[in-house]
Design a protein around this nucleic acid. Structure first.
Length: 581
DNA sequence: GCCGTTTTCGGCCCGACTGTTTTCAGTCG
């Protein structure tokens, strides 16, 4: 396994410690940058052992960082970090994770209120210790308290985008174990929820003992929580819990259904079975003979058990896609047609290295073309997103020319000149109308002022939706899962206005965002709003994030007709142009 | 800490927002 992730964390921690200690901001930034470069570096940095020159040839990594990377490759640690870490209490770094708490505040908490951990912070809030600090009013303390509650509420579930690759990689490894016939993931992961509590795997194997052995002795396992004949449970690094259940192939469908849930969906199905004089459990759907004990233990043959489809059919119900097996969905409703990754033919929100992407314009277009798309929109950041190297009006004009040129040059795909233009706090857009009118597509997104109240957020977003030159509202709430709540506008009002003004709402497929979220999508779909599913790609591999957006869309019952990325080129281009006439 | 070259030091993004203040400090992107 690559050392990049661990190494990246080390540099991030160095930056955090320096931050709390009040070091030079540029030095802190440089360390953060190195951390990011390492995290995103495509190959294992361990390959640079002894090659300082190679390391420093990477932009952003200088002599000092190269030395520390080499030290880490050699010894597995960075001495400077060990030294730095001894200067401050360990728990302070956690405090930096609290939204709204920065290094200055954390330092003051430490030195003036003896707060050195999240627990201490909670105590300090309740015993009023913080109120005696200058410049700390009730509002501020209340905000911190809310942030803490938010962290606690969402902190122990991992994001879909973390869980799914872990599950897939583990399945791939375990399928190599001799005797293993199949493994699938179930649970909330299969339902595509935005966060996952633990990962459930179901396996069929001719040699369950060997599979269990391989599972519990995997390289990332830090604790075995359970190890039995049919179920093993382990904890991996980073607090991930994984359950492996070994079952008979003949009962695979029943087990998959049972462990996919949701609990509410299972209850509904079981009640239905009872009414029909049957019993449903994880081993199958059985005729209920009124006898004691489980039907399978008494040798009763199931009516259905091998596949999910068999069981739904036996219950006289339509098969339900896992994404729709939530409390708010009825098992009796035939599922609507749902959008699929294969249906997506256009990416309408992507960045190049003109702003904060890593792809050149050409690389972006080629990447989109290789995915079989008929359209790619180039939507770099606007000027107010200074952090993201947003384009000044002059740079945007030149960028538009470059995009038109490449559109003429590269055949087989339409390249749209666009912008991801900031929706400023008061609802104004970041470029004037004359410039916006020159663009083929305008994605308007909120990036700053993401804590403003609901009323302001609503009028802010309404202003963008109603703007005649805006096509799509990008990541409408600006939330970051487990990290930032984002805006809470009046969604029904937004969707109503979006329908009226023919403006499209985005599902940002980045698993950190998934914004709109599933519940919003469902509402938007019901209200007749058109939806875009965009990856917001900054790197070539970001195009693969599409599947998270698709899962979210499907949970919101979005079909291909209402998803503009699934439209034909003719229909899409005609709609885009229509907003300009 | 990194970079660039008008090169071995000086510059590195900075405006918007919030909560607190009464002119500003801290956080965020």
């Amino acid at each position: 396994m690559s050392i990049n992730r661990k190494l990246s964390t080390q540099f991030d921690t160095i930056a955090s410690v320096l931050e709390v200690m009040g070091a030079n901001a540029f030095k802190i930034n440089a360390n953060r940058r190195v951390a990011r470069i390492i995290k995103e570096y495509p190959t294992d940095l361990a390959e640079f052992a002894g090659d300082k020159k190679g390391l420093t040839s990477i932009e952003g990594i200088g002599s000092g960082s190269a030395d520390r990377i080499l030290e880490f490759i050699d010894t597995g640690q960075i001495n400077e970090l060990t030294q730095l870490a001894s200067e401050i209490p360990e728990g302070l770094i956690d405090l930096l994770e609290v939204p709204g708490l920065g290094p200055k505040t954390v330092r003051r908490f430490w030195q003036e209120a003896e707060v050195t951990s999240l627990d201490e912070l909670r105590k300090a809030i309740s015993d009023g210790r913080l109120e005696s600090l200058p410049r700390f009013g009730t509002k501020k303390i209340e905000n911190i308290s809310d942030s803490l509650a938010f962290m606690e509420a969402s902190g122990d579930r991992m994001r879909l985008g973390t869980a799914l690759p872990i599950a897939e990689s583990l399945i791939e490894t375990l399928l190599q174990v001799p005797g293993t016939r199949k493994i699938e993931y179930a649970g909330s992961l299969r339902r595509g929820r935005e966060t996952i509590g633990d990962i459930d795997l179901l396996a069929v194997s001719d040699d369950p003992d060997a599979l269990a052995e391989a599972f519990t002795t995997g390289p990332d396992v830090i604790k075995i929580l359970a190890q039995g004949k049919t179920k093993c449970s382990v904890r991996l690094e980073r607090g991930v819990q994984i359950d492996l259940r070994m079952i008979e192939d003949s009962a695979f469908g029943a087990a998959l259904m049972y462990f996919t849930g949701s609990k509410e969906h299972n209850v509904e199905l079981r009640e239905r079975a009872i009414k029909a004089g049957q019993r449903l459990n994880e081993y199958g759907l059985f005729p209920d003979d009124g006898g004691e004990g489980t039907p399978q233990s008494r040798g009763i043959q199931p009516v259905a058990s091998r596949t999910e489809e068999d069981i739904y059919e036996a219950l006289e119900l339509p098969w339900q896609p896992p994404e729709l097996r939530e409390q708010r969905d009825s098992a009796e409703d035939p599922p609507p047609p749902l959008v699929t990754t294969d249906a997506i033919r256009a990416e309408l929100h992507a960045h190049t290295n003109a702003s904060d992407g890593v792809m050149t314009l050409r690389e972006l277009v080629e990447q989109a073309k290789s995915r079989g798309y008929h359209t790619i929109a180039v939507t770099d950041h606007s000027k107010s997103s200074g952090q993201a190297n947003g384009l000044s009006p002059d740079r945007l004009r030149a960028h538009i020319d470059a995009i038109h040129e490449i559109n003429d040059e590269i055949k087989g795909i339409r390249v749209l000149a666009g912008s991801e233009v900031d929706i400023l706090a008061d609802g104004r857009l970041d470029y004037d109308d004359e410039l916006l009118a020159r663009l083929d597509i305008v994605v308007a997104s909120p990036h700053a002022a993401l804590t403003q109240d609901s009323k302001k957020a609503t009028s802010r977003l309404l202003a963008a939706i109603e703007h005649p030159l805006v096509h799509i509202i990008g990541h409408p709430t600006g939330r970051i899962i487990n990290k930032r709540e984002g805006l809470s506008p009046d969604m029904p009002r937004l969707f109503e206005s979006a329908v009226e003004h023919d403006t499209v709402m985005e599902i940002n497929a980045n698993p950190l965002r998934l914004d709109l979220r599933d519940t919003h999508v469902r509402l938007a779909v019901e209200m007749g709003c058109q939806i875009a599913i965009n990856t917001d790609s900054h790197r070539p591999e970001d195009f693969d994030l599409l599947r998270y957006g698709i899962l979210t869309a499907r949970r919101g019952r979005l079909g291909p007709k209402q998803c503009i990325n699934a439209w034909t080129a003719r229909k899409l281009h005609s709609w885009l142009a229509g907003k300009r006439s």
